[in-house]
Design a protein around this nucleic acid. Sequence first.
RNA 1: GGCCCCAUCGUCUAGCGGUUAGGACAUCGGCCUCUCACGCCGGUAACGCGGGUUCAAUUCCCGCUGGGGUCGCCA
Length: 489
Amino acid sequence: MAKPRLRFAPSPTGYLHIGGVRTALFNWLWAKKTGGAFVLRIEDTDQERSTAASTKIILDSLRWLGLSWDEGPDPGGASGPEMGAYGPYTQMKRLDIYKQYAERLIQEKKAYRCYCTKEELDAQRDVLKKKDPKAQFKYPGTCRHRTDEPNEPFVVRFKVERSGSITYVDKVFGEVVTPNVELQDFVLLRSDGVPLYNFGAVIDDITMEISLVARGRDHMINTPPQILLYQALGANVPEFAHLPMMLAQSGEKLSKRHGAVSVGEYEEQGYAPGAVLNYLARFGWAFGDQEIFSKEELIAAFDWTHCGRGDGKFDPKKFLAINYEHLKSSTLMPDAEYAHRALRFVHARGGLDHVTTTDVLRALYTIRERAQTFVQAANMLDPFFRSPPFMDEKAVAKFLVKEVAPRLRELGDALATLDEFTEATVESKMHAWLASTGLEIKAIGQPVRVALTGRTASPSLYQVMCVLGRDETCARLARAANVAEKSAV
RNA sequence: GGCCCCAUCGUCUAGCGGUUAGGACAUCGGCCUCUCACGCCGGUAACGCGGGUUCAAUUCCCGCUGGGGUCGCCA
């Protein structure tokens, strides 16, 4: 059996939607697993809404996610404007191909020119609606048998047989049967020669030799007419796999008003691409009880038989939790990669341009298990690199009070004597000092924390000191002591 | 409304005739603790309803209810 060829065919009408990513992911996973091809095609025939900027955003998002395509457009990529042997991979560059196929269908009497205007059809629709609000308007076939060719604009319509039915076996939903009478003579080409979705997609899938079409369930209704097209053109009908919908918590279609829905937003919020893929993969698909997957594990485990059929609700909390698992795991994400990704967010905070991945790497272990996103990670990393750190006013007021000033000085003096400044030496030194003063660590811990980090929550004090180093630690203690001294309380 | 699809904890799901219906997220307790986290232990929580089929239904069939999709010269 030939290697399967799959495709992801987004419309460049905005950002890359999280639901679109799931579609892309499932296609990609299957292509990777089977050694098949993953084709990226841009369906930009809606000229009203399509933009080049959107195409760029979509390509960038796919690259960020690591969903690499074997064939497709590649602006900004290493391979030039198009890659692959079936190009172009942008529909507006393939208009002559569609026209050719449409001509052929007309020649073979499988399609015909329709001169009915949009206005006429709208009027017919209204009349019917008025007569019977429950009635379904279907194109009545006015131009079906027309033989003249007036010099008027026309669309090309497909001639749907009135009898019979269309059957296909969906890889996730099973057998689906649709009687032809449910269909109507649908439009192939608009009057301006641009194909409509069903025609463009089918012609492309035929000419690009796509063997498995996996897409959202909202496209299920398009499958029967598309199959008719394959048959009319004597082409092999590909396999189909429809994926259940991803809805908002409210049960509505997921959209902007339900929070972040674009890949770009999650990138900005500090999600890991692998986590995005992991969450989306487990949405509508399961592999026993396993929740956390690396990309490789996903490829190895994925199949269509374990895809569910019920729609689901997007859960931002679980998504965050999955992201956390990925950020915590040095297996899923090596330290070097973590540091590299986190650095961008550290820099984004401003004033820390001098910080390097090496710096981040050094401080990483103190915060790695605490940050759910890279934004949080950068926030936790901030006090290590900002000198002096931002001092939280409330924290200062509460903990850097007059009475702790001498304590902070004593501790600083004690630590200043250390030659080897490691977590262990710092800890034992501090314990010794504590013992000499009779203080409990609880009594001085928070003031020290505020002195070192400017805030009340941080990694372990010993870790913080160790990362800061002796001189910086002592400097911060001294500085805090001065602040405490001047405190009113 | 027509046509189509779907239905296990709040959410994502495991289950493929016989289970104390499992896991994860969320949530609620407790432990741990220099703060915040982590971690650990434990709790609450589901088979929509009604008929069949069967010795036995969460599981198979039908109906209902509920939810969703789609009805364009959008995709």
